[in-house]
């Protein structure tokens, strides 16, 4: 649905060059919620703004719903008719909502329809329908200044949906909101994704956002995507930074002659008593250093950090047993060995 290839953005100011995007290849499938996560300055914001060409990429291409937007852009700095038409089919929500303070809630939602040239009656019908969808039908005549942050973002979302977009871009939509409101806005985005089949590309610096609504995720660092994939693929990737961040477990080894491993359970593996089987089969004592169960992308996932007696070489067989059970094993602090083991 959204594909970027070799997307590069270099900012030039007074002879200095800053590379915000360095050859980003992103592929967002139709109907999924895709999260791009990274620290500030990683290039997330440039990336999402290049998707609807609010920012002109220095090199590379962007295509949304089969249209090559970079080809529509033309050469000048101004957006031509075709690019503007393509933009009207891409909804966007912003961190600071960007609602017009001089207009009522309903008039804000009608704005994209005014731009599309929809008739007055149709505009107000559509706007009220959308406000109903986001649960704000009673605020149609209010001004943005009279709303709370969460309500403003709901208006922002209703406005983004006015042009019947297939794609919604979310630029840190929940970063200015408190945790409670964040949850309700994420829930709304999830519902819209399911009900309308809306493809959502969101950028965020909050891991919780990815955890609660994303089907796929990408980690950005220094203008590059360093990891990407569906959330379950990522969780199944040994040594994945994103997986570890999505699902942190703590705990240190109690001595040098111990082996610490992280066990990740997904799906039905989560329900089998593998640890007690391991203990009985090999007659070893297992200490649990840390453990967590959570729902990631709608799936039950568990992660446990356990300690086995003896160094890694002595534990090759028990670790092999766990792998046979369909569990994902990361040996902590022995990354080289893990990679050998994976071969």
């Amino acid at each position: 649905m959204i594909t970027t290839s070799g997307l590069t953005k270099v900012y030039r100011s007074r002879g200095r060059e800053v590379t915000a995007l360095d050859g980003v290849d992103l592929h967002v499938r139709e109907g999924e919620v895709y999260g791009v996560i990274g620290q500030s300055g990683a290039g997330k914001s440039s990336l999402i703004r290049c998707v609807n060409l609010l920012e002109r990429p220095t090199a590379g291409t962007v295509s949304v719903d089969g249209h090559d937007l970079t080809a529509l852009a033309g050469r000048g700095p101004r957006a031509g008719r075709e690019l503007r038409r393509a933009r009207s089919r891409i909804g966007m929500v912003f961190q600071h909502f960007n609602l017009l303070s001089s207009r009522t809630v309903q008039d804000n939602v009608e704005l994209p329809l005014e731009i599309l040239g929809t008739s007055g009656k149709e505009r107000s019908r559509k706007a009220l329908e959308l406000l109903d969808l986001v649960g704000l039908s009673d605020k149609a005549k209010a001004y943005p200044a009279q709303l709370s942050g969460g309500q403003k973002q709901r208006v922002g979302i209703a406005r983004a949906l006015a042009g019947d977009p297939k794609v919604l871009l979310s630029d840190e939509a929940t970063s200015a909101l408190d945790p409670e409101t964040t949850r309700s806005i994420l829930q709304l985005l999830r519902d819209l994704n399911r009900q309308l089949g809306l493809t959502v590309l969101l950028i965020t610096h909050e891991m919780d956002v990815v955890k609660s609504i994303c089907d796929s995720a990408a980690l950005m660092e220094n203008g590059r995507i360093v990891e990407s994939g569906t959330v379950s693929e990522l969780l199944a990737t040994p040594g994945s930074e994103l997986a570890a961040a999505l699902f942190p477990v703590g705990g240190d080894a109690s001595g040098d002659d111990r082996t610490v491993i992280d066990v990740t359970f997904q799906g039905d593996a989560a329900t089998r008593p593998v640890i007690s089987q391991l203990s009985r089969t090999y007659n070893i004592d297992i200490s649990i250093l840390g453990a967590a169960m959570d729902t990631v992308a709608g799936r039950q996932v568990g992660r446990m950090r356990i300690e086995l007696p003896g160094v890694y070489e002595e534990n090759v067989v028990p670790i092999g047993f766990l792998r046979e059970q369909g569990l994902q094993i990361d040996v902590v602090g022995e990354r080289e060995l893990v990679k050998d083991g994976a071969k």
């Binding site: 609807n52 609010l54 101004r78 957006a79 503007r84 038409r85 393509a86 933009r87 009207s88 891409i90 966007m92 912003f94 600071h96 960007n98 017009l100 704005l111 994209p112 731009i115 599309l116 406005r159 042009g163 871009l169």
Partner: peptide, 17 residues
């Protein structure tokens, strides 16, 4: 606020809009 200008551009608005 420049964000408002961007929001309208993202909706497909031109300079006159």
């Amino acid at each position: 606020d420049h964000g408002l200008v961007e929001a309208v551009q993202a909706m497909g608005g031109n300079t006159w809009t």
